[in-house]
Design a protein around this nucleic acid. Structure first.
Lengths: 190, 190
DNA sequence: TATTGTTATACTCTATAACTATA
DNA sequence: TATAGTTATAGAGTATAACAATA
């Protein structure tokens, strides 16, 4: 899964992997990367340690590995497949390269993922008439049905989380997340 | 990765996969499962839909797939390996079965994971003298060093998140998470 | 008999490298 | 030349099934 542990970085020909993959189009995460490098050289703060401890404690109740893992179990899908179906259901048809960005995998990997989704009849490929190099992935009716089922399960998970919170905490959380989002968007616009 | 898509459930002989895997010892997630089944049959609420929209919007900036993905990149480790090292570093030596629970994989899978970690010299196996069936995994000095490096990177990620929030929001979030945790613990104690 | 792990098998995910088609 | 995807190859993750050792 990883490089053979002996291959040198060879940073020239590497496939772009926009991990902090941003807006609908390209993103410049250079600034974000530099910021993170600066942060990495600094020391933990009381706040960051407190937050990490909370995360680990929560991880004892629900695995931190993949929030969508339980959905995969029930529907007999892999995490990657679930993420692909969720994004296609939420945003509609898109280039497979963009889909790869959303999921957080490379363009080489997305080919096989879309292959298998197409084989099971949930996704179909078409060529973009504008740019004939590009391949557009789109949900089939059966895939739409499946993605809606996933969305319902995700919604139930969210309701389970919300049921653990008092009403005022819920409202506070919404405001908090919206402010974080506004910051991210402002930073992206730069 | 999944079952061959044709195998019947055969719910008798299946390996236990405690996805909501709880405390240090066994957990009864029967109650939690029943509650979730009840939630799944209900409809989305304005709150749950608002929350889901926020999640998806955040997912455009940072892939929702695995929060630790970027650490894997840098250190040339897989997500599963990172999670194993994090838990062993945080909680100390433990039975490989417990480690599997923490990560969210089955006991069949943990064997290969620990195999590879042992090959790269970060983890070693010993027998539990109390229960000679059980195998204890423990970090080597080199593994401890690596897990500390991962912890520092995680801390930087947390500081990056906190830097997006106002001081009062940070305090509010801590209180919120602590109350959620208290609820989970109370429910577990039942 | 029940529990803890391991082994064997098969499929999926993933990255690297080399390639094709289009811009 | 640069970009969007695909193909080929190989290592790692994962589940099912069958098994061994211990309780």
């Amino acid at each position: 899964m990883r490089r053979p542990a002996s291959t040198p970085p060879a940073s020239e020909e590497r496939d772009e992997r926009p991990d902090g993959a941003g807006g609908p189009e390209a993103t410049d995460d250079n600034a974000a990367n530099e910021e993170f490098a600066a942060l990495s050289s600094q020391s933990p703060t009381p706040d960051s340690q407190r937050m990490l401890t909370l995360f680990m404690d929560l991880g004892r109740f629900r695995s931190l590995r993949d929030p969508l893992a339980s959905i995969c179990e029930d529907l007999n899908l892999t995490p990657t497949q679930v993420h692909a179906l969720v994004w296609l259901g939420h945003d509609g048809p898109m280039h497979v390269g963009v889909l790869a960005q959303r999921i957080g995998i490379t363009k080489k990997t997305i080919t096989g993922v879309v292959d298998r989704l197409a084989e099971m009849g949930t996704v179909e490929r078409t060529r973009d008439t504008e740019d004939r190099r590009a391949v557009v992935a789109r949900l089939t009716p059966s895939g739409t049905q499946l993605s809606e089922r996933i969305a319902r399960t995700m919604d139930a998970g969210v309701r389970q989380l919300l049921s653990l919170m008092a009403a005022e905490d819920r409202d506070a959380l919404f405001g908090m997340l919206e402010r974080i989002l506004a910051r991210l968007r402002a930073r992206q616009a730069e």
